[in-house]
Simulated scan of single mutants.
Amino acid sequence: MVAGLYVVALAAAVPQGAGGHGRDGSWSSAEARRFWGPSRMSASTGDDADAYAGSEAQRITGSARHFDGVPAVGVLFYVGEDMRDHHCTASVVHSPKGNLIITAGHCGIGDDAAFVPGYRGGERKQPYGVWAVDRTFVDPRREDIGDGSDLDFAFATVRPDGRGRQIERVTGANRLVRTPGDTNRATVIGYPSTDSDPADQAIRCTAMTSRLEGHKQLTMRCDGYFSGTSGSPWLIHFDEKTRTGDLIGVLGGLNGGGPDGDESDKISYSPVNDDEIFRLYLDAINGREPRRA
């Protein structure tokens, strides 16, 4: 079921909020671009003329591969770190206003954050611009362990660019859908931190998912998903032409998205998309503060 249809079904169930995690209006996408500085970014045209050759990674690989990335997936930077480091991945999801991204709840986006879709760290290229995060929406019941880890997802709205465009118009968007079952052929795209992977490039892997016992979460095995890939979209029906797909989860969940120890970069988790994520989606598109009993 597509998100638009499901929103109608859940409209009556979403609690009424007041406010949300807002800003004072001083942080714009244009300012985010200026903060980055001319030495660290190229002009944003909304166009990426490079050829895309990633179809081989659609095979069941078991090991992540570096590639040039896709327009609707990128990294989160923080002003407090001078935008030098990224430690979470996010992606654009379709919404009525075209201004919504999704990541893991434990990423703690906060104030003065910026989203850089299609980031290419090795070349310091930002082909789709730098987008200031406006408001964030996280389920208040989220925790790192226990049942609260099943709620480890978050949405954020981003401000228009200097030309008044919403991000979805520039990058396209994935479609938020219900997780269809435990077994899925998912393509997972993310950005490891430079501490974990000096290449500073996007990675992708196609793997089969299964249920994480004792939780409303999926698990998959694929090497290379180090720190920084939290929030990576899990996509089915990935289209190599549009470079988008149906988003059935994001990398996160128990212990921040994987087991402790030597297997932490090889086994990844994702909360399933059920009623709870669509309630939060409604909060985000309507600008309501999430409130859960």
Rank of each mutant, 00 (worst) to 15 (best):
V92Q: 04
D150Y: 05
L280A: 06
D239P: 09
S63L: 08
P117K: 06
S227V: 09
V177R: 08
V250M: 10
A11N: 10
H86L: 01
P233C: 10
N174R: 05
F137K: 06
P15E: 07
D223L: 14
V14L: 10
P180M: 11
L251T: 13
M41H: 13
E56S: 13
A199W: 11
F226H: 12
Y191W: 12
I267L: 11
I167G: 07
E213F: 04
G110Q: 12
G190A: 10
M220W: 14
I285H: 02
H215P: 00
P15A: 13
D265V: 00
S227Q: 13
H94E: 14
G118L: 05
G146F: 01
D200W: 13
V14F: 10
D82W: 03
I277K: 03
G25P: 09
F77E: 04
G287M: 04
G121N: 09
A186V: 15
D50W: 03
G17R: 12
V250A: 08
I267D: 02
V14G: 02
A186W: 04
F226Q: 06
G228L: 07
A114E: 01
D150K: 04
G62M: 05
F67R: 11
G252H: 12
T229H: 05
R221A: 13
H215F: 15
F226Y: 15
K125G: 01
A104G: 03
G148I: 12
G129T: 08
R84Y: 08
D50R: 15
P192K: 13
C222H: 06
R211E: 07
P117M: 12
V70F: 10
Y225R: 00
G252T: 02
R175S: 13
K216T: 07
I189L: 15
D24M: 01
L10P: 00
M41C: 11
R279G: 03
A57D: 14
E289N: 11
V73M: 02
Q58D: 14
S44H: 02
P71E: 01
V75L: 02
I109G: 01
L10F: 09
D195P: 00
G256Y: 06
L76E: 02
L100F: 03
R291F: 06
E240Q: 08
G62S: 08
E168A: 15
I167W: 02
S91R: 03
G46V: 11
L212P: 00
A173T: 12
P71A: 14
L5S: 14
R40W: 14
R211I: 09
I248P: 07
L76D: 01
W234I: 01
E56N: 05
N286Q: 10
V170C: 05
W27T: 08
T229I: 10
R65L: 10
L100W: 03
F67M: 00
F155W: 09
S268D: 02
